[in-house]
Amino acid sequence: MDLAGLSTGWYLALSVALFAIGGVGLLVRRNPLVMFMCVELMLNAVNVAFVALGAGLNDVGGQVAVFFVLVVAATEVVIGLALVVAINRRRSGATADDVSLLKG
């Protein structure tokens, strides 16, 4: 394990920063595609934390968790992009603010 001098804390700090940037992007951006990319950023932040903690605890479970996160991220992107395509077919150039049909 090549962790000499590099503690898990640094990885977790990077993970926190990446997660916060992704969260802010999700709140700020209005293009649904870019919002999905920000979700991917947050998922990757969690992956970094999983792998670093798995290495710190000497447990392969962290890597297994990342494996499942990857699969779920792939399915989430497939369904999300299908929704974006379906919405854009009805009204082109829609941003997240325009999709308010369910608003009371």
């Binding site: 503690s7 804390g9 997660f19 605890l57 392969v60 479970g61």
Partner: peptide, 29 residues
């Protein structure tokens, strides 16, 4: 968000690392 998560990391790192060492199939070494 960053402040809350950072606090968790700073206060929890000692607990998170080295508390439990996996054995058998799951050990990485």
């Amino acid at each position: 968000l960053a402040a809350v998560l950072g606090t968790v990391v700073i206060t929890g790192t000692d607990v998170l690392t080295g508390l439990r060492r996996a054995g058998g199939d799951r050990a990485l070494d």
